[in-house]
Amino acid sequence: MSQGASILKSNRKNFLYGAGLAAFAVLPWMLGVYNQHVLIVCLFYTMMAASWNLIAGYTGQISFGHAAFAGIGAYVSGILAVKAGLNPWVGVAAGTVAAAFFGLLVGLLCLRMGGIYLSLTTLGFSEILHIIINNEYEITRGTMGLQVPGLTTSYSKISYFYIFLVGAVITLTIVYKLVHSNVGLNFRAVQNDERAASALGVDVVRTRLLAFTVSSALAGMAGALFGHYMMLITPHIPSLDQQFLVLSMTVIGGLGSFVGPVIGAFCLEILSEYIRAWGEYHVLVFGLVALVVARFAPKGLVGIYKAWRGKKRPETA
């Protein structure tokens, strides 16, 4: 392909992304309040799944603490707003920094050992957080939930929609830029073969640490925004059920692909709203679907689509 053609193609791609984003941005004006809420939750999960994909999909490290880091973001921001009267926006920034800080600490602790240690430690971290939230009832209000102020003076779903849209775009941009930078080459090298990567000069521990810290910080931001949107922070945000949903969204959408988590987040959230009509079966249903997908189509919906297009192409050519 000549360089001109490839620029043309990438321009067309950018144009399509821009047009899609613009169309999506006007969507809430045509929807009722309930559907606006669904879209906002979709965007929250997009942020969560895309940032989890950064660590799991691009460096091959499974963190089970992603929901816990969202919880850190939410509780830090919420508690600062309630106890110290801090502006919620400053709180969101503080929550993000706190999640990054704890991510860095956990990462420093276990990332020099193999990948399994990260999974074990993050699972333990998430459990510790739960115990602390339940025990420090005075501060966190335990399972009752902590009431926190909203991000805007007058409550409107439309304004939250745009806040979450910006959040999702920021998250996706950071992921995209990182993955397509020199560091991104290191991410993928580490995922493919740690030993070969380090023989080529890749500092494997630092590479993982960077991915994990950024990923945790983005989860913290998503959690903080979500807490202020719901105006009630409960231990459900940092729960293993949430962790499982984020994991399923990414796996079903397509682990390690850029659009996969976005597709997964929208599909599963919208689907769960429908399934909820006949009871709380959605976790079980998603679990079974995720199990089948992870087993038979490990690259998710995006992988299935690519394989289908790959098969179709030779016939049309």
Partner: peptide
């Protein structure tokens, strides 16, 4: 620099990207 007796390519990366990993870590930025 060393090679491995049992080769260890980064299977899901292109040959160019495989080699680029070596380049970017010797010339950061």
């Amino acid at each position: 620099a060393r090679t491995f007796q049992v080769t260890r390519p980064f299977g899901e990366m292109t040959c160019l990207e495989n080699v680029a990993v070596g380049v970017v870590n010797r010339q950061p930025g």
